[in-house]
Design a protein around this nucleic acid. Structure first.
Lengths: 226, 226
DNA sequence: CTAATTTTGATGTCATCGCTCCAAAAATCC
DNA sequence: GGATTTTTGGAGCGATGACATCAAAATTAG
């Protein structure tokens, strides 16, 4: 879209690249997403990206650096809907996570990219040679779980969550369900099935501390268990 | 243990193997468990198993066949506690799954083997070359989810589960939580943290259809939400 | 003891992997 | 136009991956 404008506007001296860098990165991202780091070979990468080996190293450095860049690109893209829903100021905490699961079901089963999440299931089983990537993925996963915990804390502060909620445990639970959804998606679960799982998962939600204080109408008069 | 007896008892004519086949298989299983199929190289395998390349092919056929055998061995071993708890006739359905999560937390964090589950997170991202193994792992995962569904159906038949329970969805949810626990375990979650997640997950349990009908004492007078 | 049977150790093979090198090509700057 | 800068195509590299070959070694059956 705007890449051509940028390209012609600020191009330096040398020969111009014949490929669209963003498109190539996207192609690589989808390949990594589908096959993982080890499952994606160099030759498959440059074939899918439509570039030569020289252009590859000239533009992306190495397979490892490309993977990092692809991961960043993916996280930026998926972070838009993820944090968009999580930090939507107009919804209470419960609704935010409920919507998060709905969006997850939708995003994990779109036709325009591989099913599931690129980082949820990445580098879970690797040799010592990929220790760095593994730690990186662990950090990414911990980050999103931390963001969930933050949202829950905000809910407590705003009064739509019980003050005695064990934030870290609840966040770990919600995170675990999301990882489980990623596995289910990879195994071919349907969008509706995943949405159903999300709805069941929300039944574990803590009961309202003071009914009537939530920001959104409806869906807040359940709970009351335990 | 008994391998030596079996060995001397039914050994045929030729030169006797110098290694313990079961021990070698166990070593290979742990390596696959930790590093996955692609992440485990041939040389690493024979080194960990303490055998030569010829003995490897003579005894196990190929890396792929060894992986299948290792998976079978793993499933037989983990199936002992899994199905032992799931099909324990002395517990009601809810208690069975509650114990299943407790056992999962314990088994996923033992010191004598890699954390998490060998099949829950296996072959989730692979190239076309490993299509067969991927499908095999998908089947294994579907099998355990099916076993959960069976147990829930039994609970309905025996009256300790609501008759209008959506069995497949509940099983998919419980399965997803288990997969999520496997991811958390791989990322280094503690046993206690995983047990906590399991306890939160059980809050999504359907309410009792007819209080007082369950087989075990205590822990059956909660529910009542929704 | 001899023959038959099986495992073992030591190489060897062939494809792939991720990566590098270098000269030619295509643009800009002066 | 010439110098400069950057990308491109193509060939090749060392290392590793999984597997194969085969004679020697170690056992038992007869």
């Amino acid at each position: 879209m705007t890449s051509k404008l940028v390209q012609t506007a600020k191009r330096g001296r040398g020969r111009p690249p014949v490929f669209d860098r963003e498109a190539a990165l996207m192609a690589a991202t989808k390949l990594f997403w589908e096959r993982g780091y080890e499952g994606t070979s160099f030759d498959e990468l440059i074939a899918a990206m439509g570039i030569s080996a020289s252009s590859f190293y000239n533009s992306f450095g190495s397979k490892e650096r490309l993977y990092c860049e692809a991961t960043s690109s993916y996280l930026e893209s998926s972070g838009r809907w993820f944090f968009g829903i999580l930090n939507d100021e107009s919804t209470d905490t419960r609704t935010a996570f409920s919507r998060l699961f709905d969006a997850t079901a939708e995003e994990f089963t779109r036709g325009d990219h591989p099913p599931g999440c690129m980082v949820s299931v990445a580098c879970l089983q690797t040799g010592p040679g990929l220790k760095n990537m593994r730690e990186m993925m662990v950090e990414h996963r911990a980050f999103s779980e931390g963001a969930m915990a933050e949202r829950i804390r905000k809910g407590i502060a705003e009064g739509d969550m019980p003050s005695d909620t064990d934030v870290d445990v609840l966040a770990a639970y919600l995170s675990a369900v999301a990882r489980g959804l990623a596995v289910q998606a990879r195994d071919g679960a349907s969008r509706e099935r995943m949405a159903q799982i999300g709805r069941v998962a929300m039944r574990a939600w803590p009961s309202d501390p003071a009914p009537g204080k939530s920001k959104t109408v409806g869906s807040s008069k359940r709970g009351a268990h335990q």
